[in-house]
Computed example of a mutant assay.
Amino acid sequence: MGLFKRNPFGHILFLKKWLIRIAGALTHKRYRGFNQLHIEGSEIIRSLPDRNVLFISNHQTYFADVVAMFHVFNAALKGRENNIKNVGYLWNPKLNMYYVAAKETMQSGLLPKIMAYAGSISVERTWRAEGKDLEKHEQKQVKLSDFRNIEKALNDGWVITFPQGTTRSFKPVRKGTAHIILHHKPIVVPIVIDGFRRSFDRKGLRIKKKGILQSFVIKEPLQIDYETETVDSLVEKIEFAIEQHPSLLKVIPTEVLEEQAKLDQERQWRY
């Protein structure tokens, strides 16, 4: 690899490789030390082609989820069987791996900007700004450049996306993900994670609690009939695949109850 070889986004691969190496070494104990990461499905990662693969996952923290995926994917590609023993698997990491993230999140400080260089596809959220959901009339138009960047990344390698667009549980899947899948027809691999919200703060930078058993389950690729699949049917399929469909909500999480109580209080004063 040439010293100044770049990826389609202009990032120098030599620099990206060292960023992944350093970040991996600094974060390894977060998943194998302070806490333990239980992994299922490493063999699925090894069976995938080198490009046009879209990973869809539920989301629990801003950054810890993605960092875990870089660990798990690279460990699996180096032959680790459902474990991330010996961080040496990051010496030659997969460099054509990207993740979709909100532009406002990736521009919120020096560390996010550094992490963005490691593979972020920054998109502008149309339905949310400054940490708040927008009213329907306030929502912005989708930028075509965001879709083109995701297409560019899929043509080059693997893309990780969180189709709910938020770390809150059981929020609806955004239809944009379904449109991307139907248009580009990638291999779609669902991932279900748990324990990250208990392990880390919301940003996923600070360890909140130690001794948590985190889980990371890689599922078989979705079976999609592109002749008959609709956006709505695919959205529902994604919600079941990442275990975020409303019908699966047996126990309402505390944060959902708190959010509902806040909304009820606002309505009380509004009407």
Rank of each mutant, 00 (worst) to 15 (best):
E243F: 00
K262N: 10
L182Q: 11
S247C: 07
E255G: 01
D194L: 05
S199H: 05
E243Y: 01
T230D: 15
I180D: 11
R267H: 06
H245R: 12
E236L: 08
D201P: 07
K185E: 15
I191E: 14
I212V: 13
T254Y: 06
I218L: 14
G204E: 10
V217G: 02
G195T: 03
E259I: 00
D225F: 03
K237F: 02
G195K: 11
K262I: 01
R197F: 03
V217N: 14
E259P: 01
P253V: 01
Q244L: 07
E255D: 14
H179C: 02
I218Y: 08
Q265V: 00
E239T: 05
K250V: 01
R270S: 09
V251K: 14
V189I: 12
G195M: 08
E229K: 10
I193V: 08
A178W: 11
K208T: 04
L257S: 07
V192A: 06
S199E: 11
Q214Y: 03
D232N: 15
P221I: 08
E258I: 00
E220G: 01
K210H: 07
A261M: 09
S215W: 04
I238V: 10
F240A: 04
I187A: 10
A178F: 08
E229S: 13
R197D: 14
P221C: 09
D194T: 04
L234K: 13
E227M: 05
Q244T: 06
Q260K: 13
H184T: 05
V251C: 04
I242Q: 12
